[in-house]
């Protein structure tokens, strides 16, 4: 099985992504749309059809001491989840949590 590493420079991730947050186990879609696609053209060999076949996350320290997660998508494809990307996911989750919080019914006895 051939494994390639796609090391990408992260684009600015802003309000254009919007809320609600993507489910965490679908995070790969966020990568494809906002990270990989702008940087890797069709000649890059990225098979978008396999995008939902997220196989694994694994953390390990990078050479610079900056934690990275290797994300494997489909057969032998790998991208890097940088801490910056994770923080973006946290921001999504935080915005989403505020939306959900508004929907929580009141508990009896809670004034």
């Amino acid at each position: 099985m051939k494994t390639e590493e796609f090391s990408v420079k992260l684009p600015p991730l802003g309000p254009s992504i919007g809320i609600p947050a993507p489910p965490f186990d679908k995070l790969e879609k966020l990568f494809l749309r906002e990270v990989l696609k702008p940087h890797i053209g069709p000649a890059g060999g990225l098979d978008l059809a396999r995008s939902t076949q997220l196989q694994a996350f694994k953390l390990e320290p990078s050479s610079g001491g900056w934690p990275l997660a290797h994300i494997h998508i489909g057969d032998g494809m790998a991208v890097l989840l940088t801490q910056e990307m994770f923080v973006t996911a946290l921001h999504f989750a935080a915005k989403n949590s505020q939306e959900i919080e508004k929907k929580i019914p009141q508990v009896p006895g809670n004034s």
Binding site: M1, T3, Q55, A56, K58, A69, H70, A78, Q83
Partner: peptide, 25 residues
């Protein structure tokens, strides 16, 4: 952007064991 918080939750991403693709990588 609390660094401790980011590190704390990044560790929850870990899944073991590594599949063959990761070992190869």
């Amino acid at each position: 952007k609390n660094q401790n918080f980011i590190n704390h939750f990044m560790q929850y991403l870990q899944i073991s064991p590594s599949p063959p693709a990761i070992q190869e990588y």
